[in-house]
């Protein structure tokens, strides 16, 4: 198996167009970047059945969380004879795996060296790419000592992972360092020395605004080689994604679309952006719970080509939310939301 990343076009700023190519068993899967990895929960894109999923141009990559698979031992996916792609009905997709849920980072700052036990890619069988285990700090203001330890530990785990991983799986190194610039740089430089196929930047719990978060991540990005892809967690709003792209991030996950869906919110932003990104502050979402949509015969977003917008009104979605019918949050809004993210 081989994974290659080619930059097709770069700008003087940090903007970049790239292509990730995976060749496995003589089959080629391609992912053009910048792009999103579709977020999954227990191996399904939340709420969407495969027919509906296929109506969204997902572009071919999903992110699977190991945590979701290990509550049953042995995890069924490890016993299934034909591998994780077929088990999850994602045969056409590049399957990226992380131990932790990128959309739901629970406090794990009390990590110890014992966490190495989760290392073996245990719950799923033969993903294409996996993120090494990271000692993510979720405290607001950790001590410098704690940050240093997390960088050291994450690097040690990465080395272990590289030593133990099967040839058929590629490893992305996770960058840590919290808000400490020196440690972020050390983490980036040290990770870049290792045999990794790409990098994961976790923007969750860093900074209260998109700009603040990106600025922190930037101190890592500046010390990464340009020829490997960079995946960011926690950058989900349209504004986040635009800022991330402008700073050279190639891949994002769609957990934000799920978060919005579960809240009954639909994206209504327009991608016709002529303004400066920092002033991108037009209305981005509407809440379908709002009683003002009770009589609204318009689609969620005029002109949108997703199934929900082509077939249904805001009033109907409001009715479904109002009557606690799962069709709303479980098909229409995610169909629209994920569609919009792409």
């Amino acid at each position: 198996m081989s994974l290659s990343f080619n930059l097709i076009k770069t700008s003087e700023k940090s903007l970049r167009l790239g292509r990730l190519t995976l060749i496995k068993n003589h089959e080629q899967k391609v992912l053009d970047t910048p792009n999103c990895l579709a977020y999954t929960s227990r191996g399904c894109v939340p709420h969407l059945t495969p027919d509906n999923l296929s109506s969204i141009p997902l572009n071919g990559a999903i992110i699977v969380t190991l945590e979701h698979f290990i509550d049953v031992q042995p995890p069924p996916s490890t016993q299934f004879p034909y591998g994780i792609h077929k088990f999850l009905n994602f045969e056409e997709y590049i399957v990226f795996i992380d131990v932790h849920d990128p959309g739901n980072l629970k406090p794990k700052s009390n990590n110890t060296d014992k966490h190495v036990s989760v290392y073996t890619v245990h719950g799923v069988r033969q993903p294409d790419i996996f993120a090494s285990l990271a000692d993510n700090i979720t405290d607001e203001a950790p001590s410098v000592k704690r940050v240093k330890r997390s960088v050291d530990r994450t690097l040690r785990w990465l080395d272990d992972a590289i030593n133990h991983i099967k040839e058929s799986t590629q490893v992305f190194g996770v960058l840590t360092g919290h808000k400490n610039q020196e440690e972020r740089i050390r983490s980036a430089q040290e990770t870049a020395k290792r045999n990794v196929a790409g990098f994961v930047l976790n923007g969750k719990c860093l900074g209260s605004t998109s700009r603040e978060c990106i600025d922190i991540l930037k101190s890592s990005i500046n010390h990464l080689p340009s020829n490997k892809p960079r995946l960011a967690y926690g950058l989900g709003t349209p504004e986040d994604i635009l800022l991330g792209v402008s700073e050279g991030i190639d891949l994002f996950d769609t957990s934000y679309a799920l978060e919005m869906t579960n809240a009954g919110n639909a994206f209504v932003f327009s991608l016709d952006i002529k303004d400066d990104i920092d002033s991108f502050n037009r209305q981005q979402i509407i809440s379908l719970w709002d009683v003002n949509y009770r009589n609204d015969v318009r689609p969620l977003l005029a002109g949108c080509q997703c199934y929900s917008c082509k077939n249904h009104t805001r009033a109907y979605v409001h009715h479904l939310l109002n009557t606690h019918e799962m069709l709303a949050t479980s098909q229409f809004i995610p169909l629209h939301g994920i569609f919009q993210e792409y």
Binding site: R42, H47, T49, F69, P76, S77, Q79, F87, M326, S330
Partner: peptide, 16 residues
């Protein structure tokens, strides 16, 4: 086995 993972936990389990 796949549906077992999702039944009553994910809405997809209900749908399927």
């Amino acid at each position: 086995a796949y549906i077992h993972m999702h039944a009553t936990r994910e809405t997809v389990g209900c749908h399927l």
